[in-house]
């Protein structure tokens, strides 16, 4: 076993910041097939265990996942499906597991995907799931993920997406569980007016850590990306967010926006943010905004003047941060699972 480098920043910066990449001790020993509920008319397929596109976590993870002794799950949608695809991953005690899944949404088709990552309560192993999304022209793909593995377990949530003309990929992720959790999203916005929308919410406490790398690679004209990250850190929790909007030559009239809002609740938290905008095209609009810290005195004062206790003010505001992400989904089962997971915390 050895450490692999994942979530590499597309353009490195000072090494002293210790934020150019993440390291994780990962080598899969077994597969983790999901349970699933398929929409009517969809049959799961199986493919060679190879990832065909770039992903957020990067090549070293892909090379490790190539070793998983299992096929890749393939889900195809060639029309707008009314029912969602639901995938459930349950990691067992000390396993070092991995699996790949591929979602292909054909021209003009649409699919919603709900994914829940859970584990046994005392699980202490590591799991990695790599999801490949191919959104053909004029398609819609909406993926909502809940990460609720045990606090003793490490987890890698890796996504690669290829977005065609007039296609839209929406990814919503709610990170609630796990000891050391890594999330990667890479999106190739190749098509004319291709769109990526990403909303990530997290709540971290104790000495848990979350390391996120999101890359929106714009090559398509008028392509659009939006990366929103909201979360709450308490105790000795640590979070790293790397977000990159990369406007390549030819991505004329493309737009990209990143925003981050972090509420810090303890003096021992560590929050690192590296929001990159890379640009080799003149006619684009890119922006980034970040707000990091505790609540403003005026907000606290206002709420306390309405009879809310100091502790409750923070509780409400922490919930509010996550709710802006959770509200992106209206699926009852997903909302129920998120609520249940939140209550445990």
């Amino acid at each position: 076993m050895g450490k692999i480098i994942i979530n590499r920043l597309p353009v490195p910066t000072w090494r002293s910041l210790k934020a150019n990449y993440a390291e994780v001790d990962y080598e899969p020993e077994c597969a983790m097939p999901p349970s699933m509920i398929l929409p009517e008319g969809m049959e799961p397929g199986f493919g060679e265990n190879r990832c065909r596109i770039r992903t957020g976590c990067g090549e070293e993870l892909s090379r490790e996942l190539d070793k998983v002794p299992w096929t890749k799950y393939v889900y195809n949608a060639d029309k707008v499906l009314d029912d969602p695809l639901r995938l459930y991953f349950m990691f067992e005690e000390d396993e070092r597991a991995g699996i790949r899944a591929e979602i292909n949404v054909g021209a003009g088709a649409g699919l919603e995907v709900y994914v829940i990552y859970e584990s046994f309560e005392n699980a202490k192993g590591i799991g990695a799931v790599q999801l490949e999304i191919n959104a053909a022209e004029n398609s819609r793909v909406k993926v909502t993920q809940l990460i609720d593995v045990s606090d003793g377990m490490d987890f890698i949530n890796d996504i690669g997406a290829k977005v065609g003309s007039d296609a839209q990929v929406e990814i919503t992720q709610v990170y609630l569980g796990g000891k050391n959790v890594f999330g990667g999203i890479y999106s190739a916005l190749e098509g004319y007016r291709s769109v990526l929308r990403t909303d990530i919410g997290y709540k971290l406490d104790a000495d848990r850590s979350l390391d996120i790398n999101v890359v929106a690679d714009h090559t398509g004209k008028r392509s659009e990306s939006e990366i929103n990250v909201r979360g709450v850190l308490s105790d000795k929790a640590k979070k790293v967010f790397r977000g990159t909007i990369d406007f390549k030559t030819g991505a004329r009239e493309a737009k990209g926006a990143e925003s981050e809002d972090v509420l810090l609740l303890n003096e021992e938290v560590v929050n690192k943010t590296i929001p990159l905008i890379l640009c080799s095209e003149e006619d684009v609009e890119g922006s980034h905004g970040a707000s990091i810290g505790r609540l403003s005195d005026s907000s606290v004062f206002y709420m306390m003047s309405r009879g809310i206790s100091y502790e409750k003010v923070y509780e409400i505001m922490a919930e509010a941060k996550l709710n802006t992400v959770i509200r992106k989904t209206d699926d009852e089962e997903m909302l129920h699972r998120i609520e249940k997971a939140l209550k445990r915390r």
């Binding site: 353009v11 934020a19 303890n266 690192k272 929001p275 990159l276 640009c279 810290g293």
Partner: peptide, 16 residues
């Protein structure tokens, strides 16, 4: 290219 980094290690800070 724009490559900013922020490393915040206290809750009592206001960073924009």
């Amino acid at each position: 290219d724009t490559i900013p980094a922020m490393d915040i290690r206290t809750d009592d800070a206001d960073i924009g």
